[in-house]
Design a protein around this nucleic acid. Sequence first.
DNA 1: GCCAACGTTGGC
DNA 2: GCCAACGTTGGC
Length: 155
Amino acid sequence: MPYWLFKSEPDCYGIQHLAAEPRQTTRWDGIRNYQARNLLRDQIAKDDTVLFYHSRCKAMGIVGTAKVVSGAYPDPLQFDSSSSYFDGKSCLETPRWFSVDIQLQEVFAQVISMQTIKYIQALDNMVLRKQSRLSVQPVTEQEFKILIQLKNSMH
DNA sequence: GCCAACGTTGGC
DNA sequence: GCCAACGTTGGC
């Protein structure tokens, strides 16, 4: 069961927004980067686990977990001309951008901060540390376990 | 809000 | 298909 990290700016859409959704479920849409698209379309599957990360804010870091509750499907916003995510070069037959649905699993009592993540040597190879701009990233099982242990050790 | 790093675009 | 110019992301 693979693990992923999804980034979001909490001013735009934070984990509290997810918690307030009906069934605490939302469509992860608006991803407009090919590397992230490839992961969504080809790798990410139902029942995978997502680390929810808050970027560009005061308390940067991992704030909770979610479950992938759908397979990948075309992001409807690419066909919506009123959306800022509209892509006129995409077409229904061969959609360019994809979404999955995620459901909130847990809101951590404390954020696993960027500083903490940087401090842990076993997390040196996290994609987050190397290729920080990718907004949908793979997380290894070992990295995931370390992060969960860390979360459980914080009060 | 700055700006380095990175991704995308388009002229050649 | 190279690469300069431009746009965007995200830590600081």
